[in-house]
Design a protein around this nucleic acid. Structure first.
Lengths: 206, 206
DNA sequence: TGTACATCAGTGAACGCGCGTTCACTGATGTAC
DNA sequence: TGTACATCAGTGAACGCGCGTTCACTGATGTAC
């Protein structure tokens, strides 16, 4: 049953080359060295193949996100933003399959996120909540703040996809990191504190 | 030459009904009560029609944004976020034609924004800069902050479009407003100030 | 006032394309007896 | 060990569709003389 995996891999290459719109079943079949119709032996239809691609791509992203080992909340969020943007820049097809395609099993706010079905956002919400418990962060809805950070980076990516930036890769990544950081810093600096910069506060969370 | 305008209007209806993907030249022609090929008398090709639709839709959005008459920076940003989200919720096709389609004349960050070609973002950046000059806002790159606020709301909309929310219209709009406000408030409250909430500060800017 | 002509919006048939999906099939492999 | 059968991955032709675009045309309108 390894043909299925072969098809998913070639489907990813196809979606990377042709984009979400140009993605076709027939191309996947022949790219995999089979007939155009071979795909139907393994997937009921196009939608199902696309869903499988999305899940596979999400595993990749999730692995990278889980591998972040930053100690402080700040640097963890920054690293996560970077992983997200690089995932988009390097493999936009996979990114779309994960975060743009509407599938039926998607993680939905707020239910799916509260119950921890969306690993990354849940993880971020937990870290934010932990920082709140330690008094390092102002007390707001941690899940909503996590969502907001996600949407912040996602929004920059979406505008990038719509051709709204003429920045180098490096500058764009830095812009995204800064935007994510501003949200964390804001939540941190809204605490009672002396009148000074708080960039380096809350460094040793967990 | 009013047929051209008629075609644009029916193109908008079409793009609203069928979405960006299902949008076809033939459908526009016959929807306007003409032959399928009549469009080619007025537009060189599909792309040009789409650009005309985008510009027309942008005028609508721009008019609404310009009509906001809030006194304070805070409430102005909140109102702008609302206009943006409602533009998406009510007329997603027009929204896509404005902010998702890649056209050749798009406003690009940072050049096109600095020179004021993107009316709304430029206006926001100017208001932010004015608030900075009055000492109500922390001194950062006003244009970047404006971009960030835009991307924040745009990101929430993009995730909504990908089916990630199960919120009522009202709740989703409120969520977007809150997210935009958090960014403005953060920039305001990062000023030197007593250890208290700053929600109501900086109320009378201009 | 009348005639010849140019312009140009709109038409309808056709081209060529790629798509998702269906369907009857082939042929290799494994299993039951 | 040999034979009959079932299973099932893979095939290739075909269906029906809608798309963007080209092209020769029609027919009304305006203009020049």
């Amino acid at each position: 049953m390894e043909t299925r995996q072969l098809l998913i891999e070639h489907a990813m290459k196809e979606i990377e080359q042709k984009g979400l719109d140009g993605f076709s079943l027939r191309a996947v079949g022949s790219a995999a060295g089979l007939s155009s119709m071979a795909v139907y032996r393994h997937f009921a239809n196009k939608e199902e193949l696309l869903r499988a691609v999305g899940e596979e791509a999400f595993k990749t992203f999730n692995t990278r996100a889980s591998a972040i080992s930053s100690a402080s909340l700040q640097s963890w969020v920054r690293a996560l933003a970077r992983v997200y943007v690089e995932f988009y820049l390097d493999t936009p097809g996979r990114f779309d399959a994960c975060f743009v395609v509407r599938t039926s099993v998607e993680r939905i706010y707020p239910q799916g996120f509260r119950s921890g079905k969306s690993p990354v956002i849940s993880m971020m919400a937990e870290r934010l909540a932990a920082a709140q418990a330690e008094g390092q962060l102002v007390r707001t809805d941690a899940l909503e703040l996590a969502l907001q950070i996600w949407a912040q980076v996602h929004g920059l990516v979406a505008l990038h996809k719509a051709g709204r930036f003429s920045l180098s890769r490096k500058d764009f990544i830095a812009l995204c990191e800064r935007a994510a950081m501003r949200l964390v810093d804001a939540a941190a600096s809204d605490q009672s504190r002396p009148a000074q910069r708080t960039r380096t506060r809350a460094q040793s969370s967990r």
